[in-house]
Design a protein around this nucleic acid. Structure first.
Lengths: 346, 346
DNA sequence: AGCTCGCGTGATATCGATAACATTTCCAAG
DNA sequence: CTTGGAAATGTTATCGATATCACGCGAGCT
């Protein structure tokens, strides 16, 4: 370098607020105020500052800001999988709801294991989110402890956990599946089968299976046939394989309920490929009301769940606590809607 | 509070590194080292520290750390939609690749508009990511300027932009669609139709359409019929509507290519609903090789794209620059594979 | 005129960690 | 017993913003 050069800069480090302040001839504090909504800065000053910001291509550094303001502007959300359109909808609901608040989403996926969830929770907490949204109520002990001592609002979604951590936005997967069984029973079906993943990992899947078993019991029917197939998430392909194994073992099955629409779709396609008529030879129902279930032929009877709404509500709850500064109101539970969608497959 | 109490704490603020240091009887710096991989701390000290960490339920605060180390540990990625399983796969590829490096993903979706993308880029840059992954090559001028002055590596994906910003991981959508046309032409089809969204927003869609038009020209066939339908992303339902409008206007169409498998699936289902035989009466092909295309009946001929690999490669490129400290090597382009998957629908 | 009040702005301390340098400890070779 | 040098640990100065308090100034009131 030579010369005296301008007071600062000249080196190529990204501009800071001080650089902007310098150029605009004000203090850094005033720049900070000018860049924040609703702070009182005179029009003239604000314009000078904005000009400087543009000239330098300055972008606010939130990591620095959140250190002193003790607000990171992050919200964490953890879902089992982002490849599942139900959870993608929930994530979208969260993001959309957060958008107007200036909060930013940190998204992670567990691949349906609580171990991965625990790691994710820790990674997220390192970023000091102001709230966190989880899927389901199954967590490791350490995860529960970390969440407790983090001192931030927690929302569990998609289920009704037996031991909620804080708030809950979800529905009873058991009841929902039960309702589906009863709807089909009312149409005359008597011999039921259920297709799901090997249990335990996907707690929602297990709950649906429980609901299936209980409903059949309540109806006084002979126990339903259960086929477990593979590790969650159960794909389209596995749905097809499962229905085959179901029909080999119990050829008299009249109606097959599946843990999700993807497996139901796989089952439907496989049956058609084998020349079976749906629903005449066998009825098929799914869960989740994925787009594919509505437009395949025949359409798949399914349980519509308000995925997007779960995300919205969960985010809204967090925002209330975060921004509204409300006291924690203990374990509040918000139930979301579900309803049976009857289509041609039953 | 009464009593003298322990030196510090007693108030309910979350514990800091200093609290841990205090409890373990060491300095904060030593705690910092103990919590970082590969730093030399004696076994005894480390154990004392870990005990203190556990007792207090301490979780490292990365926002504070990144301020002083000038490394945030963030990587940003922006995709058009997380509800599209192709992009969800890419996001998964990125996350998986980042996992071992300790980098964390900041994910956003543009809903296929460059305006939203611009806003997202700004929001992400406020977090000072160490690198950023974009979808496609269409960006607003301001977005380009922000990216330039951010001084971080940028990877554009899923396309081959005419004016790359930095690195590229993608393929030519034009060529890929051309290949699909030629494959079908080789099977004897002559009268082609194309179903896509109203152009401009989805640049990959536009490129595929261009590829379609050019390929037909090269083959010396009469110009293909084009149906534009709705705003991207084109859903299953719109695919069905589009094929109807296509067949009303040009009943002699022999093969319909769709901008994605979702619209192809919608078209297929709609044709079946109307009693048309696929592929005898009309052939249908898609793009993207979604799971549904493989398992519907008949299977949909499509273009397989290495979605997951795009994400992996993009992340890998960033990591090389970020961690390896490699110099920027200018506009390097990495081509990803694609291949035609022939199935029963053609 | 004297006083209060509110607005716009600046000065300073601080958020919680880490970089960089300083210091101490420890062990082995001479 | 030294002494050199690596390993372990401590000290201090920052990173870039914002909270907080202080200040100057003009308007409105008595």
């Amino acid at each position: 370098m030579g010369k005296v050069a301008s007071t600062i800069s000249d080196d190529n480090h990204a501009p800071t607020m001080a650089d902007v302040a310098n150029r605009a001839g004000v203090s850094a504090m005033t720049v900070s105020r000018a860049l924040k909504e609703g702070s009182r800065v005179s029009k003239a000053t604000r314009e000078k500052i904005m000009a400087a910001v543009n000239d330098l291509g300055y972008v606010l550094d939130q990591s620095a800001g959140s250190l002193s303001s003790r607000k990171t502007g992050f919200v964490a959300a953890i879902v089992p999988s982002i490849n599942n359109s139900n959870f993608a909808d929930t994530a979208r609901g969260i993001t959309d709801e957060l958008e107007s608040t200036g909060l930013q989403l940190l998204l992670g996926y567990t691949e349906y294991t609580t171990e991965k969830e625990e790691k994710l929770i820790e990674a997220m907490l390192r970023r000091r989110p102001e709230g966190i949204i989880l899927t389901g109520g199954a967590h490791t002990d350490r995860a529960r402890r970390m969440l407790k001592s983090a001192g931030i609002p927690v929302v569990e979604t998609w289920e009704l956990p037996a031991k909620p951590i804080d708030q809950v936005v979800g529905f009873s997967n058991e009841e929902a599946m039960g309702l589906l069984v009863k709807t089909l029973a009312a149409k005359g079906y008597r011999k039921f089968g259920y297709i799901g993943g090997t249990t335990s990992r996907d707690t929602r899947g297990s709950q649906r299976r429980e609901g299936f078993i209980k409903a059949i019991e309540e109806l006084g029917l002979s126990p339903g046939h259960l086929v477990s197939f593979g590790v969650p998430p159960i794909s389209i392909e596995q749905g097809g394989q499962a229905v085959v194994s179901m029909l080999e073992r119990w050829p008299d099955t009249e109606a097959v309920l599946c843990v999700s629409d993807l497996s139901a779709f796989g089952a439907l396609m496989e049956c058609q490929r084998r020349g079976m008529r749906v629903p005449e030879d066998i009825a098929i129902a799914g869960f989740g009301d994925y787009e594919v279930a509505a437009f395949c032929h025949p359409g798949i009877t399914t349980m519509n769940v308000d995925c997007y709404g779960i995300g919205q509500q969960a985010a809204r709850r967090l925002i209330q606590v975060i921004r509204g500064g409300e006291k924690k109101r203990g374990q509040e539970i918000f139930l979301t809607a579900y309803r049976v969608i009857e289509r041609g497959s039953t």
